[in-house]
Nucleic acid binder design. Structure first.
Lengths: 199, 199, 199, 199
DNA sequence: TATGAATGAGAATTCATTCAT
DNA sequence: GATGAATGAATTCTCATTCAT
């Protein structure tokens, strides 16, 4: 019989890779990188341990792929949201987006955030996180400047901290944390003008 | 040789325990819990591996003690600072205290914060962190209420988030992070009345 | 498409086998049998891992073929050289041949020689090596007898040892080893008569 | 109870190390380095796998120790033998020594020799072997010079080759190889004067 | 109290081999 | 004939924990 075509192989490949990354994401975001073994990942992905090494060089390599894909996912959503709107609305959308992300993608936020504690061990993460943080900060400070807020840089730095701090406390307190209330509170605080226009 | 007295034994015990916890703190806050071995802790503490098990039942037990002692350390400083002052000054002192902690005890903050990612693995940590967070929040909200801030609860939740968020970004960015500037910014923002009164 | 003829199939077969053996020779003589994987061989041969198993039953089977082909290569050259000449010249040619082999086919010598250390693991190699050694020894002893050397058997055993010993030291010392000097030295020692006659 | 004394620990340590090295020597010289697993070594030594790593950093580390101890063993015997005798007798003793070594310590010779094929993989071995070879060669060439042999350097190089070549052929042919006959033959060839004096 | 030797379970990783296409 | 995905056993190595002294 003739061998599978390149496309067939590629389909198989990407499906397996997808499975591995999904399993890895699920387990690592739940239990942490060190507490997740390749065996667990393979079992969760429904494949053999050996196959994992067909697609990834090492456990660290899985982490790299995972983190990069996690980052670029966030990226895409981020840009798409705020590029084409006027500042007042964009600011509102930012809160909207952030709280939505937190509600639906808490695991993703958890994974990325936990990486900050692994910078010593995996230096590439430091780079990624710093870049992420800079973009994040830059975007917010531009929004705030456009809205006419004084000292937008420090305000942005503070707002960025608010976001990660809320994510952090949500992680600790779980559903006891009043996400909805905080969202409303922040919108009222930062988007008053826009709101008033809406009234 | 005369046998050692109870007091002597007790002194030896507590000294060894202290050493173990110090070593554990040092290593775990730097490298993480999973990446720190009992051997490393014993070596850093200058005692034998076996002796560690004389004082602690397991590696997890060390973590429990470590986290509890870390928490109560923070506690003590915290209470002592704000109990006896008037609200306007206390708020200032709070910023003072926080940024000082971050500058001098970053490792402690890092250790406690990282624990949030281990809640699934060590449920006792969830309790501790939630309590901590509640106290933290309660104290700030009282301060803000006393200062006359409207909606002090949500403001407190936000300010608490600002603190942890700044800690988090400081962890990522290191000395590039403008801690001083942020401190000044927050003091100006939250303690204006007091400052103006002072002038 | 017309189906391939038997000859075409046969050509493909033998070409693939040739490639596999070449790759195996190259890698195994450099890195050793155990440190060479089927994947490496397949990659070096430019074919797939699976195809290797179309032509060989197992990794050991490759080694068998490899060693046999290596031995018979040496064989062919060997016989062709000394069969038709007169003894005095043949002895000279022997040295010539040996040092040439060493210089140009060191890998081959290395592969065959290393096999001696695998006799326990692959008994078939013992047979092959012993036969080889016997032929080798027999040929030399005949040459020496024809040249009129007393006790040609032991002299042959010694000379055979000299050859492999030199090969061995050349392997250790690399280009620092004075191959040329040794060649001249041995020729002077063993072929003086012939040389002097030639003058 | 009081802990064991330093001496007791040291005794335990060196006994375990001895066992590991003995087992490793036995297995590696028989089956080769790559074909010998740590599990096998531990089992042969009658200890657990884990303990091996209490005493050696890695499998390679075992090899290093093994090779170094093998080399220095040979060394000691070597020097002791030839330093204090007159050249004619020393030459005889050299043959004596060599054939004895081969008969009683074939495994040691095999281990050391096989290492030559691992130079690429373990560069430290190259150093050791070259030094060994140089000493070996230097000692023989001095002996031959003292005995009055012309061109003692090349003769020494040849004799050194004879030795390793014989070892090599003995490895291949086993007890079929006429070691005794070769010993006598070489003594007759190289120690004639001394022998004749003895007659 | 104190030591460190000893264990064994489990981690990451490799690789010969099989198999569906 | 040809491919490479998939497997599983084996390998090196780590580490929490136990134990004899």
């Amino acid at each position: 019989m003739s061998p599978r075509t390149k496309e067939q192989f590629e389909a198989i490949r990407s499906q397996s890779i997808r499975r591995i990354l999904d399993a890895a994401f699920c387990l690592i975001s739940k239990n942490g990188y060190e507490s997740t073994s390749i065996s667990q990942i393979a079992k969760e992905a429904g494949i053999s341990k050996g196959l994992v090494y067909n697609y990834f060089d090492s456990k660290e390599d899985i982490l790299v792929s995972l983190v990069e894909s996690a980052f670029s996912e966030g990226e895409a959503l981020f840009e798409e949201k705020f590029e084409t709107t006027e500042p007042e609305e964009a600011l509102c959308l930012l809160f909207d987006w952030f709280f939505n992300e937190l509600r639906t993608q808490a695991e993703l936020w958890k994974l990325i955030t936990e990486m900050a504690f692994k910078i010593e061990k995996f230096p590439f993460i430091g780079e990624l996180l710093q870049n992420k943080l800079r973009e994040y900060f830059f975007m917010i400070s531009q929004l705030l400047a456009q809205v006419g807020m004084p000292d937008p840089e420090n305000e942005a730095r503070m707002l960025a901290a608010v976001f990660d701090g809320i994510g952090f406390h949500y992680l600790i307190a779980g559903d006891e944390y009043p996400l909805d209330e905080m969202e409303q509170f922040l919108i009222n605080k930062y988007c008053k003008n826009h709101k008033e226009q809406g009234e």
